[in-house]
Design a protein around this nucleic acid. Structure first.
Lengths: 234, 234
DNA sequence: GGCGCTCCTTGATGCGCATCAAGGCTCGCG
DNA sequence: CGCGAGCCTTGATGCGCATCAAGGAGCGCC
């Protein structure tokens, strides 16, 4: 749970400087931030924190991949988010006096930066622009979560899968006419993220293939007919 | 959508001063905030904003009650939150350049305060403590939403209802031994908030009554056996 | 008082999706 | 090459919950 190692300070600082959140900071401030951050190397499968662990900062993914999930009383697990390089997680809890309610686990060998609470709070004290960015970040997160709630409560499994595919498609290439989506991780985990069982996910893809809307090859999904796909409802 | 009237400025300012968010502000600052806020009177049933409307501030409920919901393509509706007096809504969107994704509707004749974006941003510029409170507020919201996602994805309808009843119970009286919960609004709306149909909600309550765990009389629900209720799983 | 309104309940039916249980497929490793 | 471990698919079955369709039950209003 606590950083095992922290190697090249300089590299970390360079990475921080490249993040939208820390852009435009004076070198001296950046240095203070860097002083409060630690690089953490996490092997695939390792738990970064568990529900109930205390929180004293937030994490950035430099490379690798992290999943956020909660685990039910009966042991089943629900993936809330799959965090890609360049993204952060765990900010929200920093501002509350509460322990984590989710667990975070590395899906691949990863390098994270852990920025401690203190330096964040200090920076808020000092720079309103930084506050604005923090607020914008949390807002974005909130927005995404509301969309998830919407998707869970009034879309079918198929609609969620379709929505996900189209979203990924749009992100990957600024344009809408690149038709290959690569799943970020195993189908089972993507399925959980979309709140369906692996079995059901498999069947949904099967149906989409039958309908000649997509083609699947491993984690590569080719979208054959985006227009019809958008209007497909099962 | 835009405030019809704004009457007693003084009263509004007094109310603002009583809110955690604005507590500890200097009178001069409070005045600036007050200058950017408008009182809005909304009759029961009126829509405060719709999905797609632009957002230029956030709202406080002085008295009355507001529901936040989204509406599916087919017209069905899902209640995300029931906002009680003293609480606010719509902050998150202020910090993003996006229109509302939810609609807000008054469930009772209500009085709201609308605090405009500008004064909030100005205050962030000026007072880091204010930023901290804003951040804490958003974090709390985020936390709640994650709990909702958890409840939707790995609890049954019955478990959600039970959880809701126990939560209300705890809130209403600082202690755990006051056993009457009053639903804040109609059963149908509470049901939607809990992501079940009114019919299903009714049946769940019926079962809980059968099991001698609760008694229901209109919107008054008496919890007969909190301990057993907590461990009831359908 | 009776009429219509809103809100809630109850019953019958069926769909969406989970669950359980076997297989395939692929890839690494002895 | 063969064997096992992950990962994914496919099939059979059934449960949770929505949906559709009628009633009550309280309540204001003519």
């Amino acid at each position: 749970m606590v950083p095992p190692v922290s190697k090249p300070k300089v590299q970390a600082q360079a990475f921080l400087a490249s993040l939208p959140l820390f852009k435009e900071l004076a070198p001296s401030e950046l240095e203070r931030i860097a002083a409060g951050t630690a690089a953490i190397n996490v092997p695939r499968g390792e738990i970064i924190f568990n529900r109930g662990d205390p929180c004293d900062g937030f994490h950035f993914v430099v490379y690798g991949q992290v999943k956020l999930a909660f685990i039910s009383a009966e042991g089943s697990e629900k993936v809330v988010e799959i965090v890609a390089p360049g993204y952060s997680f765990g900010e929200a809890l920093m501002f509350m006096e509460k322990p984590y309610i989710l667990m975070a686990q590395a899906l691949a060998d990863s390098m994270l930066l852990h920025v401690s609470k203190n330096v964040v709070f200090a920076e808020i004290e000092r720079d309103p622009k930084f506050s604005r960015k923090m607020l914008a970040g949390l807002s974005r997160r909130l927005h995404g979560l509301i969309s998830d709630v919407e998707a869970y409560s009034l879309q079918s499994g198929t609609e969620r899968v379709v929505g996900y595919l189209l979203r990924q498609d749009a992100h990957e290439s600024g344009e809408f006419d690149r038709y290959v989506v690569t799943l970020p991780t195993s189908k089972a985990i993507v399925a959980s993220r979309l709140n369906v069982t692996p079995e059901h996910f498999s069947r949904i893809l099967h149906d989409l293939i039958q309908a000649r809307l997509i083609a699947v090859e491993g984690r590569e999904i080719t979208i054959l007919d985006p227009e019809r796909l958008k209007n497909y409802h099962g």
